[in-house]
Simulated assay, not measured.
Amino acid sequence: MRSAVSQPSAPTIVKCPTCKTDVEWNEKSTYRPFCSKRCQLIDLGEWAEEEKAIPGAPDLSDSDGWSEDMNY
């Protein structure tokens, strides 16, 4: 019976979220999924400026009439 020899798998390639350049997903890709520090910082800035957001439940704040101090 012959033993199976594992073939090296093809590298995983992803698109940089900022500039859409192909990026190899491995330990050597320091900024993955980004292609560079520049693209990483551009993305961070977009989140900081609230240009990007994860959809969620509406914010419950005191202006909505909700308070943690309410006694029922």
Rank of each mutant, 00 (worst) to 15 (best):
K28Q: 12
A53I: 07
G56P: 03
A53C: 13
D62W: 07
A48G: 01
L44K: 13
K20S: 14
T18P: 00
D64G: 07
G56E: 08
D59I: 07
W47Y: 02
D64Q: 07
P55M: 04
A48M: 10
S63V: 10
W47C: 00
P17S: 09
A48K: 14
G45Q: 15
L41A: 06
C39A: 11
K20A: 14
Q40D: 10
D43P: 02
I54G: 04
K20T: 15
D22R: 10
E46A: 04
K15W: 08
Y31I: 00
S29G: 06
E49G: 06
V23N: 01
Q40S: 09
Y31H: 11
A48D: 06
L41K: 12
S36F: 01
T30D: 03
C19A: 05
D64H: 09
E51F: 03
N26R: 09
L44H: 03
S29F: 02
I13M: 14
G45S: 13
P58M: 02
D22G: 06
R32Q: 12
C16T: 14
P55A: 04
L41T: 06
E27R: 11
K15Y: 08
E49R: 12
P33E: 05
P11R: 06
V14Y: 02
I13E: 07
A48E: 12
S61D: 12
E50M: 11
D43I: 01
K37V: 02
V14D: 00
Y31N: 07
D62K: 09
D22Q: 11
E24K: 09
L44C: 00
C39N: 14
E50I: 09
F34G: 02
S36H: 04
E24V: 13
E24M: 07
A48P: 00
Y31Q: 00
E49V: 09
W25T: 01
G45W: 07
E27W: 04
V23R: 02
